[in-house]
Amino acid sequence: MTQPSSPRPALRLRAQTLRALRAHFEAQDYLEVTTPLRTRAPAPEEHLAPLACGNGCWLRASPELYHKRLLAEGWRRLFEIGPCFRAGEIGPRHYPEYTLLEWYRVGADYRDLLAETQDLLRAAAQAVHGAHRWTYQGHALDVGGPWDILRVSEAFQAAAGWDPAAAFDPDRFDLDLVERVEPSFSKTRPTVLMDYPAPRAALARLKPGDPRVAERWELYLGGIELANAYSELIDPAVQRARFETARAAQARATGNPPLPLDENFLAALDTGLPPCAGIALGVDRLVMLLTDAPVIADVLAFAEPD
């Protein structure tokens, strides 16, 4: 990497973005919390390798389980902006240490969070550009106008000719998503892909009335996957079963022993997590978009891969 001859404007714009995000949550009466970076029981996900940090601990890939424990304790609106970690993920849009914004709201579902995410992105664009439109890598983005909202079923049928909600094929799903579906999205309007097939529910609840899909959406902007939202799963038995499936798959894939289950979190679900919705948004990627940066390293103070 060449040494910049003057301070990078991206870092100032990054700070401006963080201020805009915090201002939004403060105005909406959210409590900012700081939860542990280290955990003895990371949430198991089949395709995610947590970063071990000694003493039987891992660095978190998300603060999700801690936030839900706080919701079970009685908090109603929480947010956190902080570092998260994933082993081995490095690329133009991936870095093993990244900054995630997560927020949780009791009494809301994934559609409510979509409306709130629209407000949040408009506020961030306004803070950095003084407008809802700006240019990213030659494309005129506009977060102020209508957003494209597509169901996974319809997006796949249109771009790849099959319906993953009817018959799920994990390999074909990932490949077609990357090679056919994502490239079909608008280059200027934000695109929301919603109602994922149940096998890709992660921690989302299944849709009441259509259990083939989960109440989960992903937001894409300028070709970049930016945020992932759920109507949260609150059923302790279903949650335990999903963790068991995910950690068994993860252990098979890595050859490592299965990760410990987070019994404190599962106990919190037993005492009762109120219906709620939650979302994780990649802060580095948002700053990439707002600063017209083609690669994530451009918006990090330091990118020094191992």
Partner: peptide
């Protein structure tokens, strides 16, 4: 060459 990983999906 590019590393990509759709949300909750496998590394590609």
């Amino acid at each position: 060459f590019q590393f990509v990983k759709p949300g909750k999906g496998q590394a590609l």
